[in-house]
Simulated assay, not measured.
Amino acid sequence: MQPSVIEMIYSQREEIMKQWKDGMNNLEQNQFSHSLPSNLYHETNGNFVTLILDTLEMDEQDAKERFRSFAEPLMHTGWPLSYFTKGLQLFRRILVQMMTTDENLESKKVFETLDEVENWVDEVINQLVGEYTGSWENTLHLQKLALNELSAPLIPVFEKISVMPLVGTIDTDRAKLIMENLLEGIIEHRSQVVLIDITGVPVVDTMVAHHIIQAAEAVRLVGAECILVGIRPEIAQTIVNLGIDLHKFSTKSTLRKGIETGLELTQRRIVSIS
């Protein structure tokens, strides 16, 4: 960047910081600070604009490391990406306004350096977006791994009776894993009755019901009986409203009732010992 512009930024540093902080405080009625302590928001704003200005003295690699160190903790605590992008756009507008009103800068030089300012700020925005995207993709990957770990193998609870508890959202990839565990578990434990427990599934829509029906059909094909348990009242209402047909296999409201039915199907029952 041209020395005259850098000199202007240094000479106007305090004014730039003041205008930027004022702008961030008024930006869309302070949309970023409504859920944050006021002192934390203002402190973060101060650190952010100071970091932007300090990058003038850094090489590219140092600037990237500093921005990464600043942004990463904020990303992990839920600060929105728009905080960074709108903050940098505001910073760019302040600089452009100052350059076009500074009498010490020739108009020709102003236009020559506009591209440099644009490139400088755009590079910071692109870096922060890249960091945010990478962090989001990594978080999504970890969440998928956690959900896969929740896809527990079939659990034998009695001889010939097994339970598969489902927890969390069920998508196509997870449904495939559930199906594999289900069929492998039936063969391994020689199960005659399988209880699929959906107590921990927050939402049952058409797609989820389709995966469950497919699982039940697969259980029947390998010679076992399938019972769907854990149907809460709101889930039952959703199934009825969506017109989903679950008549091909038994359903029970609780795991206990499902186990009692499973015992009956295998000619057993629970009795009290006096």
Score class of each variant (00 low, 15 high):
S4Y: 09
V5Q: 01
E7F: 14
E7N: 11
M8I: 15
M8Q: 10
E14C: 06
M17I: 15
G23V: 12
M24C: 09
M24R: 04
N25M: 14
E28I: 11
F32K: 10
S35G: 08
N39G: 03
L40D: 13
Y41Q: 06
G46N: 11
G46S: 11
F48H: 10
F48W: 14
V49H: 02
I52E: 01
T55F: 13
A63Y: 04
R66W: 04
F70V: 10
F70I: 07
P73V: 09
P73E: 08
M75Y: 09
T77N: 06
W79D: 01
P80W: 02
P80D: 13
L81V: 08
Y83N: 03
F84Y: 11
T85G: 07
Q89I: 08
L90W: 02
L95A: 04
V96Q: 08
Q97N: 07
M98S: 09
D102K: 07
E103C: 06
E103I: 14
L105D: 05
K108F: 13
K109I: 14
V110M: 04
F111M: 06
V117W: 11
W120D: 01
L128F: 09
E131M: 12
T133H: 11
G134V: 10
G134N: 12
S135H: 14
W136K: 06
E137G: 03
T139V: 12
Q143W: 11
K144W: 07
L145G: 06
P153T: 12
L154A: 03
P156W: 14
V157S: 05
K160D: 07
K160F: 05
I161S: 02
M164G: 01
M164H: 01
V167W: 03
I170M: 05
D171Y: 08
D173L: 12
A175K: 00
I178D: 04
L182G: 04
E184Y: 14
H189V: 10
V193W: 02
V194L: 15
L195M: 14
I196V: 15
T199E: 09
G200P: 13
V201T: 15
P202D: 15
D205M: 00
T206S: 12
T206N: 01
V208Y: 01
H211P: 09
I212N: 00
A218S: 08
G223Y: 07
E225A: 07
E225C: 03
I227F: 02
I227K: 00
L228N: 03
L228Q: 03
I231P: 00
A236I: 05
V240R: 00
I244D: 00
F249T: 01
K252V: 08
T254P: 06
T254A: 10
L255Q: 14
K257E: 15
G258F: 01
